[in-house]
Write a protein that binds this DNA or RNA. Structure first.
Lengths: 142, 142
DNA sequence: TGGAATTTAATTGTACACAATCTAATTTTA
DNA sequence: TAAAATTAGATTGTGTACAATTAAATTCCA
């Protein structure tokens, strides 16, 4: 019986934690004129240089309704370029620009700073990482 | 070195998990014409009947910029009533209406359903609940 | 006591998030 | 191969989130 409320409470904790995380990124990303979701897109591009909107959506678990306007904003800032694919005209490839690559340097210390800001303990890393990724993975289809 | 990326990855997991949670509530709340944040407000009201916007904001960690329009939508649906306090005219008290209390019955099985939908294991409850609440608590000030 | 500081909501503006729908391109298959 | 089904993004509309500002009420305190 008491169990029932637990799921609700745990879900609320996840919801609150996500917003806490975003709020800790904000002061780090603000100076780079990036939001957290925009930063996530840049992280993917810094790894791959070119990715399709579809791939981006799969990696970040976001749909085109979210990504299309977000990518347009990144393009306005000259950090990326949206290029419709020649091979498959339905697909749009996102290219990292020189300015976008440049930004990687300025963002280099963010992982360390966010780690410090959130103050995760060793134990929290080791426990939460696999457990939460397990939850995400078992719902991977959607 | 490898540690640095971990914080970024763990934070992304939290962000993704929060959206996963919301997506699992949606089919349960849709029939009640509630969003997840609206449901959270109703949960507080089902416990207390009357709460101030300030208290609500503290409980849910949301500010008036989020709550004011959300509460207006709940009022439009006749689930709550917004009443400016007589004792302190700055404060607005949220009252549960009869329809709002009625809705509690229809929402009674949501905790069980969300538990089933998310499929948390016993171990996940026992580990995640205290660990995540600890993280939230140590950043409680903001 | 009366002005300064604080508190509480509301407002404004920007940016997600996602359901639902649409269009165009590609693939399937009858 | 031509119609049907699928796929990739874009669009539309609703609803959060939150920073920054504003306005009104209350509290502080010199």
């Amino acid at each position: 019986m008491k169990q029932l409320k637990l799921s609700n409470q745990l879900c609320f904790s996840f919801y609150a934690l996500s917003r806490l995380v975003t709020s800790h990124y904000q002061p780090l990303l603000g100076p780079l004129d990036l939001t957290y979701p925009q930063y996530l897109v840049m992280l993917v591009l810094w790894e791959h240089d070119i990715v399709s909107v579809k791939t981006l959506g799969q990696q970040l678990m976001l749909d085109s309704g979210t990504l299309t306007p977000l990518l347009k904003r990144l393009e306005t800032k000259k950090l990326i370029k949206r290029v419709r694919s020649k091979e498959d005209e339905r697909s749009v490839n996102i290219h990292l620009t020189a300015a976008g690559r440049q930004l990687q340097q300025e963002a280099a210390d963010i992982p360390e700073k966010i780690s410090c800001s959130m103050g995760f303990t060793e134990k929290e890393y080791d426990t939460l990482k696999p457990m939460i990724n397990n939850i995400l993975k078992r719902h991977a289809d959607e």
